[in-house]
Amino acid sequence: MISRLKDRDSLVLVGSVLGLGVLLWLMSAPLAMLPAPVGPAAEQFSAGALMTIQLTLVSGIAGLVLGVLAALGKLSHLPPLRWLADFYVWVIRGTPLLLQILFVYFALPEISPKLQLNEFWTAVIALSMNVGAYNAEAIRAGINAVPTGQVEAARSLGLSKFYTFLDVTLPQAVRISLPPLASNLIALLKDSSLAYAIGVVELSMVSSRVQAASFQPFPVFLTVAAVYLALTTTFTQFAGALERKLAVGKR
């Protein structure tokens, strides 16, 4: 294990996770040294970045699960499951994300007051539903790319459908799907800015508040853009290293 961690990709993997942590916890210090309007609002920026990351990671993980389920639905032998999955993907990909967020926030509670969630969880539901639909396509393609011969070999060894999927199909499908899944995650990070529409205080919301208070759009938006770039770059590095690391054994 130790020797494995020495290779460059493992360093990038560990480094980008640590980097993200450091970025989030220590970001306010360098920002605080900047002149107004950015310096005095450093804490707000870093809290906004933290919220953006939380939205992205929580929705990203839920979106992965949804993506796997929807992909399985699309590939199911049972027509109703196929229809359901196709319908889900069709609706989500065919309507704007902003509308989906507003729908979950305002329209769902009309159906039942129990569906009234706070702003954060509303955003998480809408974002994960959204990214899940895009993930479904990527995962379905990945599952289809796993040679059927390997599935047959697993079945002929007596492995159940479940273990065949878990041990043979899924790990290879994830590897194949990783590049599109990574770009979906980065799109999600940027799309999480739409949560500001329902009042989630994430990075974009912070920038618009600070800008409105200072009337100095240029430095404010420049700072926020830099923070977004730092976040997306970290994600990209992580995904790239993970992809190379998982490529082991693939010809």
Partner: peptide, 27 residues
Amino acid sequence: VGMVFQSFNLFTHMTVLDNITLAPQRV
């Protein structure tokens, strides 16, 4: 009943050892 295929059909993401130990552990 064991089966051997024309195209081998080894699990490409697993080592030789993991290919062989998977089914006995799971099944």
